[in-house]
Amino acid sequence: MKLRFRLAFYLFGLFLGIFAVVQFLGAKAEAKGVMFCYLPNCRVLKDLRSKSLNYSPEAKATLEENWVNLDDIKKTLEFGDVDFSKSNKAYKKGKIYIIEGQNSSNEEITVTMINFTDKVLLEKIEKK
């Protein structure tokens, strides 16, 4: 058998095997609620979402202004972007994280959070 036929059969079997493994592992992960979260942005947001959320007086006052609500903060914690150049620094016995996202009116917002070992403090919310 010529080399190109052997190579074609090999590649066909390889792609078929990869497809089967992805289908099997994908269905298994979806059934257990597992998500791929190995990138730094995803890991930080997942850690912040997993802890209890407390509010500073400044954040409570901003939430009462009605241009941003708690759902916007939750969406920012799920789909936002962490600014690592300003984040992951020691601050008040925790680490500070600056997260950029959008509110329900599609306005850019910046959320400042302090991550402690057992809780997360919503420090402030700003419009960009």
Rank of each mutant, 00 (worst) to 15 (best):
K119M: 12
K2I: 04
A90D: 14
V44H: 03
R49Y: 03
N103K: 04
S87E: 12
N69H: 09
E58V: 12
N88L: 10
G101C: 10
I96W: 01
I96H: 02
I99M: 08
I109F: 07
L14T: 10
K127T: 11
K92H: 09
E30M: 04
S50H: 03
N54A: 06
R6E: 10
F5Y: 02
N54I: 00
E108S: 15
Y38D: 05
V22C: 06
E78T: 11
V21C: 05
F36W: 14
R4Y: 11
L7K: 11
K46S: 14
M35S: 14
E65I: 09
V120A: 12
N69R: 10
T110D: 03
D71G: 01
R49D: 09
Y38E: 06
I96M: 03
I99E: 06
E123W: 14
F36H: 10
T112Q: 06
A29I: 14
F19C: 07
V68N: 06
L7V: 02
E108H: 12
N41H: 04
N54K: 12
L122I: 10
P40K: 05
Q23K: 12
K60L: 04
Y91C: 04
K51Q: 13
N106E: 15
V34R: 08
K32V: 12
G13M: 13
L39T: 10
R6V: 02
F116R: 12
L11K: 12
N54V: 01
F5Q: 07
A27K: 05
Y91A: 01
G101E: 08
D72N: 13
N115V: 00
V21N: 00
A31Y: 06
T110S: 12
A59P: 06
E30T: 06
L48H: 01
